[in-house]
Amino acid sequence: MEHYTYHILYQVEETHWWFVGRRSLILDQIARYYQGQKNLVMLDIGCGCGIFMTHLTPYGKIVGMDSSADALCFCQQRRLSHLVQGDAEMLPFFPNSFDLLTANDLLEHLDDDITSLHGFFSLLKPGGRLFVFVPAYQFLWSLQDEISHHKRRYTKRRLTHVIESAGFTIEQVTYANTLLFPVIWVGRQMLKIVRRFRDVQTENTLHPQWSNRVLKRIFCLERPLLRRLSLPFGVSLLAVCRKPL
């Protein structure tokens, strides 16, 4: 990501509707499988500024890895200590080391997502799970993809293919951020026009402050839906993957 992006991320990710909604959906999926467990060994690959790690600490030991020294400095400001600077395409860990992996908005950054997923597979103990969150649909490509240095956005078919190619069994793959899809699509079309007339550094601060609570509530409404079904379209994709025993 651009250097300045981590500072913006650290400032907004605790309260911004998109980050709160994403965390809510992924953490709810993790709780479905691991509620009450306290001795897991976990790895957050591409941990960013560490906000997601703070929510995983009740489940056991959480290690955060990111390629950016800036990101890890912000993790330290959150008093997180198990941190590794490393490349998701050359993982510096022993095989069969972790019960749970998370890769939140990571695969789209990688040159070779299938090879990287093979690496994730090797790190998991048999029966361990990987939780993946990625952006959906190339036609939604926007400013945030550019400044985050994304390589691609995914369809459900593409994500299923790369995960299964790495040896995982998929327990669920679903679109997410479906209810706000029309709003986001319109917003990104308008942003294309705005950028012709002025410089914009991030999408995270473009919505009016009063709307944050409303958007957050709408996004989080999908949490109970995803416990029961897979959504047919959305701004993102969420997958739960298991390494066979």
Rank of each mutant, 00 (worst) to 15 (best):
A103K: 03
Y175N: 03
I184N: 07
Y137A: 11
H55M: 10
L245A: 13
R79N: 12
W18D: 00
L110M: 04
E2V: 13
A31L: 15
E89A: 15
D87F: 07
L206F: 08
E146R: 06
G128K: 11
W210K: 07
A166M: 10
R152D: 00
Y137N: 13
V63E: 12
I114C: 10
N204V: 08
Y6L: 11
W210M: 15
R213L: 13
C49L: 04
H118E: 10
M90I: 01
G64H: 13
N177K: 07
T155P: 12
K216P: 00
D66N: 06
V194C: 13
D111R: 08
L130A: 03
G187C: 09
C220K: 14
R213P: 01
L124G: 12
G60S: 05
M42H: 09
P232F: 01
G46W: 13
M42W: 05
H150N: 04
S67P: 06
T102I: 11
V200E: 10
Q11V: 03
T102P: 12
Q11E: 15
L100V: 15
N104G: 11
Y4M: 00
M190C: 15
P58V: 14
G64N: 11
A166S: 03
D70C: 12
V235E: 03
D113Y: 00
G60Q: 08
L229G: 01
D70P: 05
R195G: 08
V214C: 10
R196T: 12
L40D: 13
R188V: 10
F52G: 11
E146F: 00
D199P: 02
L245M: 08
L124P: 07
Q77E: 15
N104P: 02
S81F: 15
G234N: 01
A166Q: 13
K243P: 12
A88N: 02
